[in-house]
């Protein structure tokens, strides 16, 4: 799954890098993702029983918050003011438990780093050195986060099992996301059918008020 994602990014990044409005949307998406990661890490910091790991998660969360602001600001520079930064988040620590959470962190940071590397190359080739430099700075942090997560994970027993679990779980999560997207379309179609059917009720309400 991660391979397909990276391959698609490699194809898509050059298209994005040449269109400032599209680039702003993609960077805005990164800002949201980083903010979501910040929440996830803050919740992990609150939940872990280990003080060194709490400190590590807090530092990592601070980096994610900074990245979110940098991406958001660059998106605004490319295509004008954007709405305030808001993001959804999952409490993955509660869902996965700490060992698997660390395995997920290692996996997600690696995936993010590979994605950013494609975009950094694409922006540099497109002549947008500022965005490329921003991405390179963030890749440096992502690399460090990946290594930190790996070190914390490998200090735990059962690291390999946790990695295998997370790979399967990630695939299942991607499938569920796909299912949710299909459900969205089905819901919209249902509403398209339902909405005309409530016209008599609307007429009745209008008469009642008149």
């Amino acid at each position: 799954m991660a391979g397909i994602h990276t391959w698609l990014t490699a194809l898509w990044a050059p298209v994005v890098a040449r269109r400032p409005a599209l680039a702003a949307r993609v960077l805005g998406g990164f800002a949201k993702a980083e903010l979501g990661s910040m929440y996830t890490l803050r919740w992990a910091a609150a939940a872990t029983g280990s003080m060194p790991r709490r400190a590590a998660y807090l530092e990592h969360a601070g980096d994610e918050a900074r990245h979110a602001k940098l991406f958001h600001r660059r998106a605004e520079e490319l295509a004008g003011p954007r709405a305030g930064l808001v993001a959804d988040a999952e409490d993955l620590f509660a869902t996965l438990g700490e060992r698997r959470f660390l395995a997920f962190l290692e996996h997600a940071e690696g995936r993010g780093r590979r994605e950013f590397e494609h975009y950094a190359r694409a922006f540099r080739r497109a002549g947008d050195e500022r965005t490329a430099a921003l991405l390179r700075g963030i890749i440096h942090d992502e690399n460090r986060h990946e290594q930190n997560a790996r070190a914390l994970l490998e200090a735990e027993p059962g690291a390999g099992r946790a990695r295998r679990y997370v790979r399967v779980w990630e695939a299942w999560r991607a499938a569920r996301r796909g299912g949710r997207a299909v459900a969205e379309v089905v819901y919209l179609l249902l509403m398209l059918v339902l909405y005309p059917l409530i016209a008599p009720l609307a007429l009745w309400e209008r008469r009642r008020r008149a």
Binding site: Y187, M191, Y195, L201, E205
Partner: peptide, 20 residues
């Protein structure tokens, strides 16, 4: 629901989002 009915047929977006 009544607010949507009163704004019909200009309430499709709020109908789908609000109902959800």
């Amino acid at each position: 629901l009544l607010s949507m009915l009163r704004r019909y047929p200009r309430s499709f977006r709020s109908f789908t989002q609000g109902l959800r």
